[in-house]
Structures are given as C-alpha cells and as structure tokens.
Design a protein around this nucleic acid. Structure first.
Lengths: 336, 336
DNA sequence: CTGAAAGCGCTTACAG
DNA sequence: CTGAAAGCGCTTACAG
C-alpha cells in the first residue's frame, strides 16, 4: 500500500508538502498541488487514518451504533442522523448491534479505534463496562432512544408516558377491559418505560396488569410472533394487544393472520412506532408516532455541541397517538 | 489522558513491558503483571488504539456502502452481510449513500481511509472515477445488487428476467392489456434490467411499452408517489402498475389511497422486492421476492475469497414471483 | 512556498 | 524475563 513517502518521491517533493496538499493548506502552489494530486492518483494513495489521528484526532466522522438496522425506526433514525451530521460537516459511520450487547461493545471499540470525533449510541444493554469507560473517559457521547441509569450522558428520546396513556384511554373507551402488552426488554429504558406507562394508565381505570397480560419480547419480529401466540393460547385471551415497537407489532400481525383472526374485530392491535404501511392494512393500525427524524437531528446537534465544547442537554420529545381502526370501530378524524 | 509512558513510569518499568502486559504476552512475571495492572488502574489508562493499529494493520473490518439504509432491501442485506462476516471473523462498518453518487464516493474514501480489509459496494452511479480507481488499484471489492459496465468486479445480485417475465404473464392472464412500470434509474443496472425485462416480456404478448406507460423514479418512496400520480393523471391511465422496488411500491400505494381507488379492482399493483407486510394489506400485494439474505451472505463469501487470495466469481440468484390479489382476482395457492 | 526534523503512542525484533 | 531503540505513517512548528 502506498504511503505518503511514496507519493512524495513520485512527485519529487517532501512529505510535508504532500501532507499540506492533503489537508488543503493554503500555502501550496497550484502547480505543486497538481503534481501531488497526480501522484496520488497514479499510486491510488489513501492516507492512513490511524497515523493521521495519532497526530491530530480525526474530526470529520461520527460513529452511530444502532440497536437493529432492520428496524425501520433505527434506519429512519440513521438517515436523519446522517443528514443533520452532513449539515454540520460530519460523515457518519454506522455499526449494527442487532440488539446484542456484545456486538454493541465490539462496534463501540471498532469505532473508537477508528477515532471517530464523537459517538451516537442506542444502548443495547444496561450494563456495559465499555460504555461506562467511554463515558468516564470524557469522550463525546450522546445516547439516542435509550438511556442508562447512573450514566450522566445526554439522551435524546421519546417521551412515552403521555401517548401510552392516551392509547390506554382509547382502548378502554372502545370497551377493552383486559389489554395485554408485548413489552420490550425490561433491561432497556424504553422497554421499562413503555411497560410502566401502560400499567400506570390501566391502573387509572382500575384495571390491573397481571402476568397473563404481559409478554416480554426483544424488539425484533420473531419475538412478536411468539408473544402473540402465547397471549392468544391462554384460556382467556386478551381482546387487545399493545406491541411496544413496530417489529413486534409486525410479528403480532403475522400471528393474527396465521390464526385467521380479524383485526379490530376479533383482536385489537396497537403499536409503539408508526410506519407508512400501517395505514394500508385492513383495518389500518393504530400507532404511537415518534418524531424519529427530530430525534436523530436533535441528537446530532447535541453531539456537535459537545464537540464544540458547549454543554449538551437531554430531550424527551413528544409523541402522537394516531388512532385508526385496528382497536375497534374507527374514530372520526382518526389521523390525530 | 495517560499514555503507556505514564504507566511505565508509575510502575517503574519500561514501556515494552507494559505493552507486553497489555497484549497478554506470556513472558511476564506474575508480579510484574500485577504491578502494571495496578498502575493502569490508578491512572485510568486506556491504550490509544490509533497508535496501536498504526503498528499492526487492522484486518478485522469490512466496509459496506449501501444504496439507501431506509430501504428494507438494503437493511436486510446489511444484516445478512454482518452475520456472514462475523462467521468469518470480520466486523462490518456501514456507510449510507442514500442513492446519491457523491455520498457514495465520500463513504468509499472514508472507509478506505479507515483501512477496511475489503469492500462491499452497492454502486449508486454508473460512472465514478473513485470506484474505478479503487477497483484498478487492486483492492478487494465485491459489488452487491448492482454492477457497473466495464468494471471487472465480482457481482452478487438477483436475476430479474425470469420473475419479471412471470409477472407480466400473470398480469396479461388477468386481462391487463396496458401495464405500466415505475422504473428505477436507468443509470443503474437494476433499473435498466427490470425495465428491459418488463418491455421484452410485454413484447412477447404483442404489447408495446409506450412512454405513457413508463415513469422513472429513484428507488425511493417519494418518487413512487409522484410517478403513480403522473401515470393516473393521464386521459387513459393504465390498469396495472409494476413498481421496480418496494419503496416506490409503497409510494404508489400511498397515491392509490390518496385517490380512494380500490387496489386490485380499480388499479393493479405489483412490486419488485417482497416485504412481510405486503401480505397484510387488503388485498395483499403481488411481489417478486429476492433472496436478500443469500445475496448478502454470498457477497461476503466472495469477498472473503478475494481476501484469502482465492478467485471470486459473480452470482445472479433466482427470484420468485409471489402472486397475491393486488393485480386482480386471487390466484389459488398464491404463495408460489 | 517548501523542506528537515521531531514526535504522536504504541509494538517488536534484538540484546542481555 | 525485561529494556533500549527503531519505526509504523502521518502532521506541524521551525527555518529558510
């Protein structure tokens, strides 16, 4: 692999000059610049970023470790992060934890090894020595979507309490007296919060949430299928199910179809996370809509603040309940 | 931040010995090891990985530049790539081109700068000097999903001809005499191939494909909405539309709903790319199913072959037409 | 405007 | 088993 020395030799110049060209230093003649660029071209030279960052930390790239790339919430988030980052002059390199704490840590250290300027992390586990180290080491980190107790890191996420309460009110109004939940992992803040909000809102209506009405999935599709089956296999199955993310809702939907049940009539279903196609299912699916793009953009802004030496703060962004017909009779003016 | 020197000084040893402890070198006394570990603890020392990888090249990571992260095809591909890569001992770092050739090139060079061992690329543009350079520079590269004319790079992709022909037969059998297509960019091999296959298959039935039956999108959702509107706004709109990827199909679906049309009755719709929720729309959507996971895994295997100094080859994997009801009356035994 | 030289924080033959 | 020293590929004052 060609090094800066090879380029310098090929161009008949010093490595210092080559370096200046690489870094767009103003004091280089156009001719010299051209000669260097030509040599770079010919040798297919790519600067070694390890060496580069050893001298001066690379400040052009942010790292994003996402919970699960195939989850539309995270891919939309990734796109928003990228767009906002570019507006600030940063690139984004993505690692996929696939909801696996070990993978998360691996990508964390890979990204760190590559000396990204800052990190956006959707934590996949509550306890990770690596994450704790990174944070305490003073590296610029912002959490997205999920937080970790005891770590003082800015978090940008949705506030689930209000919309979940609204959903429960909606369900109760439609006559559901025993709603169930397919929860996310209780080891994740989002899993815990949505479950707690659901339980508390039910309590308001004098409805309990016994074990027979709770299944814990992993935010991925298959766990939604399994959870739904298990809920429906009970002697007295629930009449309504709230899936704590879109992938588990998709899994639940698969189960409903498997069994030939009619959505909205035989069984009500609602999802945390709204997706475009929810509108086109028959009947359309009631969902809690997060401001995914805003979450991504806000997180980047807070990270950029950190990088600029300014203080960063946390955000809990509001969500909207979009009532459609999947929980029973359609509500007039549904798209609220 | 503490360096290896600080640790050495604190422990009264040389940096060489500290390094040996860090790398679990066998020839270190237990006592020495303990002393070093103690110093590391006290100073909260974290090795500088840039310096580390400067000495010993990192060969553990592959780069993947994807066409568009929010496209489920690519996110499923990314997951498959990652799983297969891990089975071979590699990590995968992802860059998102967002179907933008400039972004693609930027991520290409970022990944190259960061010294990935090899590259998986879904080319976003036919002409890219950077891509050509990389390939000619002899770097291990495998194309996924799309190929570039004139570049001799192994490609792993779907063979679209057969399934598109089957789809056209299906449409014609259901009485559609003027099917239209929402094509992908003709600057991309996938865009061109699917369009050509569609046109050729129609010709077989003595049906032409005039300009009024072709709209060109960019494989993203909004372009599907616009294309569908434009198709339907004609004096004599088509009775059937084939969207050349899932995101444009979703856009087309949005338009169908906007206009209050009944899918399968007022307008037929089929998609290249199958998605789980296509089954749950009313009526369910006919689609061409790619072997996405297999594409990803095969591509990694070919790249690994290249990295191991073995020859790599191209693959055109077969697809299946999954006929559902969105193009007219349901076909018995649809899931074929 | 350009070059010689020091040095970023590590690892690793080479000695002892 | 441990240390002195060279060097990985860059960048950047410091000269000229």
């Amino acid at each position: 692999m060609a090094t800066i020395k090879d380029v310098a030799r090929a161009a008949g110049l010093s490595t210092a000059t080559v370096s200046r060209v690489l870094n767009d230093h103003p004091s280089v003649t156009a001719a010299t610049r051209a000669a260097v660029q030509d040599a770079i071209q010919r040798l297919d030279y790519h600067p070694n970023s390890a060496a580069r960052t050893l001298r001066s930390a690379d400040v052009s790239t942010l790292g994003l470790v996402v919970g699960d790339v195939v989850n539309p919430f995270f891919s939309e988030l990734a796109r928003a992060v990228e767009n906002e980052a570019r507006a600030h002059g940063y690139y984004v390199v993505i690692g996929n934890a696939d909801e696996d704490p070990d993978r998360q840590d691996e990508y964390l250290s890979i990204l760190l090894d590559r000396r990204v300027a800052g990190l956006l992390l959707c934590p996949t586990a509550e306890v990770s020595p690596l994450v704790a180290d990174v944070v305490r080491g003073g590296r610029p980190v912002v959490f997205v979507d999920r937080e970790i107790d005891g770590l003082d890191v800015p978090v940008v996420r949705s506030d689930s309490r209000l919309p979940v309460t609204a959903l429960v009110d909606h369900l109760v109004r439609l006559g559901h007296r025993d709603p169930a939940i397919i929860s996310g992992p209780t080891g994740l803040s989002t899993g815990r919060e949505r479950l707690a909000a659901f339980r508390d809102a039910l309590a308001t209506h004098g409805i309990g949430l016994p074990e027979s009405r709770v299944r814990v999935g992993d935010f991925q599709m298959d766990s939604g299928v399994a959870a739904m089956r298990s809920l429906l296999d009970q002697p007295e199955p629930p009449t309504a199910v709230f899936a704590a993310d879109n992938l588990m809702a998709l899994g639940a939907l698969r189960c409903v179809h498997e069994r030939g049940l009619r959505l909205g009539t035989d069984i009500a279903l609602a999802s945390f996370d709204d997706l475009p196609w929810f509108e086109y299912v028959e009947p359309p699916i009631t969902a809690i809509r997060q401001q995914t793009e805003r979450i991504g953009r806000t997180a980047v802004r807070e990270l950029v603040a950190l990088l600029d030496g300014r203080p960063a703060r946390s955000h809990a962004l509001p969500c909207t309940l979009v009532t459609r017909a999947s929980c029973g009779e359609p509500v007039p003016g549904g798209e609220g």
